[in-house]
Design a protein around this nucleic acid. Structure first.
Length: 217
DNA sequence: GACCAGGCACATC
DNA sequence: GATGTGCATGGT
């Protein structure tokens, strides 16, 4: 087996043994996961948690609530998540699509084929590849491997990909090296975020990183 | 007070 | 296709 494939598989074994299954996504319903996926764009999750609590208190965590609430009210509720005017618009755009294409039913949407869903999600203003794949994987349970800034960093640090690899490059890398398994994709992404937060930052703290033994091999 | 955080759209070359 | 910029809050 090639070095890169061996390392990508070994990295998961190490992280899984270190952390156990991380049980992502931290959201109660598919709609809440979709909302979280939009709110966490380039934003610390702690800020998103505050926004979600505030939305719940204001009864905005439902299709009806999101559809009917005035823009300024929604903006106030999600203020803590940053870019709140943009994100309020993004949430409204998603609900607009959901109403138009699936009669406002998340459950009906979840039944559509994955390839069609990805195209549709990407056509919605404010939803790019990472958000689309997060929704496919964590809200709808399709095997979409999620790539984020941490994925790029970890892959570059370990020599699995070039530093300027595109989103599609990185996604192809992992999906070609791993079994196509929803539960594996779910946890692998969560584990990469864990490594990113604790070790593989812009200024990496490789000392004590469970993946340190892989470096230089 | 800089720097960073589970991106994306848009303008410009 | 690659590169630059605006969007905004809250923690370190």
């Amino acid at each position: 087996m090639p070095r890169t494939q061996r390392q990508i598989q070994e990295a998961y074994r190490i992280l899984r043994a270190h952390n156990g299954h991380l049980r992502w996504w931290p959201g109660r319903t598919p709609l809440e996961i979709i909302v979280g996926a939009i709110l966490t764009q380039n934003t610390a999750w702690t800020n998103v948690e505050t926004a979600i609590r505030s939305m719940r208190a204001a009864h905005l965590l439902s299709v009806k609530g999101l559809r009917e609430t005035p823009m300024d009210h929604l903006e106030r509720a999600i203020r803590s998540s940053g870019y709140f005017r943009q994100k309020a618009k993004k949430l409204k755009c998603f609900i607009g699509f959901l109403d138009e294409a699936y009669g406002g039913s998340v459950k009906r949407m979840a039944g559509a084929p994955a390839a069609r869903l990805r195209e549709e999600l990407l056509s919605i203003w404010g939803i790019g590849p990472e958000t689309a794949d997060s929704i496919l994987l964590y809200a709808f349970g399709y095997p979409a491997f999620v790539v984020d800034a941490y994925t790029a960093r970890v892959a570059a640090r370990h020599g699995w990909a070039s530093e300027k690899a595109s989103y599609a490059d990185l996604q192809n890398l992992f999906t070609s090296m791993l079994p196509h398994d929803v539960d594996l994709y779910n946890d692998y992404h969560a584990q990469i975020v864990w490594v990113g937060k604790h070790h593989c930052r812009a200024r990496p703290r490789c000392d004590g990183c469970p993946l340190e033994p892989l470096l230089g091999r």
